[in-house]
Amino acid sequence: MTTGPSNPGDPARAAEDPAPTGEDLAALLARLLEETGDHTQKDLAVAAGIRYPTLNAWMNRTRGTSRINPDDLRALTNILRGWGAEVTPRQLFEAAGRPVPGPTDEEREQRLLEIYRQLPSKSQRALIQTGEAMLTASRAT
């Protein structure tokens, strides 16, 4: 399993996401459940709207994860985050061996906020003005 870019000094590789941690879905869910405290597999299944035998089979690796409904992975993410776990949809999709969908609204918002915070105040004001102009233009069409 890859643990990082093969050439960390390569600027083209620096923009890529870090390599996956190597945790499969079962290991990731087990770790996250442990982090959330007193929640069980059954609690997670009920809260996410997934049948307990299905979730249990994923966690015991007796059922494949390549066909998991993307909405189930998003539901698991939302429940775990609500319980205090630090997890992104990308982590669950990668752990399940599923294609990672485009960034979620939350991930895009977080990226925009990170960029905004790195700008000097003059550029922050310009970014706000540009955003307001874009919003006005989108309402006009």
Rank of each mutant, 00 (worst) to 15 (best):
G4H: 03
S6H: 13
P8V: 08
P11S: 07
P11R: 05
P11G: 08
R13D: 13
A14I: 06
A14D: 10
A15V: 13
E16Q: 14
A19N: 05
A19Y: 02
P20K: 06
P20A: 10
P20N: 01
G22T: 03
D24Y: 00
L25D: 00
L25Q: 00
A27M: 05
A30P: 02
R31A: 05
H39A: 11
K42F: 13
V46D: 14
I50P: 08
R51A: 15
P53I: 09
T54P: 01
L55Q: 10
N56K: 07
A57Y: 03
A57R: 13
W58S: 01
M59D: 06
G64S: 11
T65M: 07
D72V: 00
R74N: 03
A75G: 02
T77G: 02
N78M: 08
N78E: 13
I79W: 00
L80R: 01
R81P: 01
G82Y: 02
W83H: 04
G84T: 05
G84L: 09
G84Y: 11
G84C: 10
A85Y: 00
E86W: 00
P89K: 03
P89N: 08
L92T: 00
A95M: 10
P99G: 05
V100K: 05
P101K: 02
G102W: 01
E106R: 02
E107R: 09
Q110K: 14
Q110E: 15
R111N: 11
E114M: 12
E114F: 11
Y116A: 13
P120Q: 10
K122A: 15
S123M: 15
R125W: 10
R125L: 15
A126I: 06
A126F: 05
A126H: 04
L127R: 03
I128Y: 09
G131Q: 06
E132D: 02
E132H: 05
A133I: 07
A133E: 15
T136M: 08
T136P: 01
R139S: 11
T141W: 07
T141I: 13
T141E: 11
T141H: 12
